[in-house]
């Protein structure tokens, strides 16, 4: 396997708080990499730096051999990196179908003022995508009328509509009910595996991590303190005490 994304010596501090303190990480093609760690460890900061929302104060990020450090979010997404958000970022006045269609239109870069957003080709693609996520019955519902779990899925569906090669997801299962969580991640994993998408996801549910991650990176105080297969990492007594223990009480 070759590295799709490589971070080298990433550093970023907010005042005296080190959110990234020399992050070195290589994400391999087609793998599912889970990021775990206590709140404030710098997990979201890493996603924000990779996707261009935050500019690192030091270090480099390389994607498919090209340096993307500090580039703007829209340049990075055009290179094939998409993200979903901890708090779903949907267009609340649009329907679910229109949200997906806007992402499809954005991907295709067709901004003609004479083509309707829901033209047949885009509507079909949007519906097919929503169907894969089990959202088709809600296609014509406004985004602000969805429950949190469904909003989360729709948010990820929009990122997938961009047909990324690398998808970064910030807590994809937060807000999803415990009874639906595994089914949702199952669906998500299937869609991403079928599309050959490499995924990096921040996750607090260790059952989800154990079941879906190929590797786990453990974050603490802006550093990666452990990296390896889930069975090895989740069995590590230090990780259990310092990270999982904290999270179970969070």
């Amino acid at each position: 396997m070759t590295a799709l994304l490589e971070a080298r010596g990433l550093r970023l501090a907010f005042g005296g708080v080190k959110a990234a303190d020399g992050i070195d990480l290589a994400v391999m093609r087609a793998e599912f990499l889970a990021i775990i760690g206590p709140n404030g460890a710098g997990k979201t900061t890493f996603i924000n730096m990779v996707t261009g929302y935050l500019r690192p104060q030091g270090g480099t990020i390389t994607y498919e051999g090209a340096e993307i450090t500090g580039r703007r979010p829209r340049e990075i997404v055009r290179r094939g990196i998409a993200r979903s958000f901890q708090l779903p970022q949907l267009f609340s006045e649009h329907t679910v179908e229109e949200n997906a269609a806007l992402a499809i239109a954005a991907r295709q870069g067709i901004w003609s003022p004479f083509v309707p957003l829901l033209r047949p080709a885009w509507r079909d693609e949007a519906r097919e995508l929503l169907d894969r996520f089990g959202l088709l019955p809600l296609a014509t519902r406004r985004a602000d009328a969805l429950n949190e779990g469904t909003r989360k899925l729709a948010d990820i569906a929009m990122a997938v509509a961009l047909k990324p090669r690398l998808l970064l997801m910030d807590e994809p299962t937060s807000g999803v009910s415990a009874s639906e969580k595994m089914a949702v991640v199952e669906t998500l994993a299937r869609v991403l595996r079928e599309a050959g998408v490499t995924a990096v996801f921040v996750e607090h549910d260790m059952d989800v991590v154990a079941r879906f991650a190929d590797r786990v990176a453990v974050w603490s105080q802006g550093r990666i303190v452990a990296l390896g297969p889930p069975a090895q990492i989740l069995a590590d007594p230090v990780v259990q005490r310092e990270v999982i223990g904290i999270e179970r009480h969070a």
Partner: peptide
């Protein structure tokens, strides 16, 4: 009704997302 026009409403509701869609 076009993506250009619909993106105007998107600016009102969630401008940041547009940036993360490459727009």
């Amino acid at each position: 009704a076009s993506p250009m026009g619909q993106a105007l409403t998107a600016i009102k509701t969630r401008e940041t997302r547009l940036d993360f869609m490459g727009v």
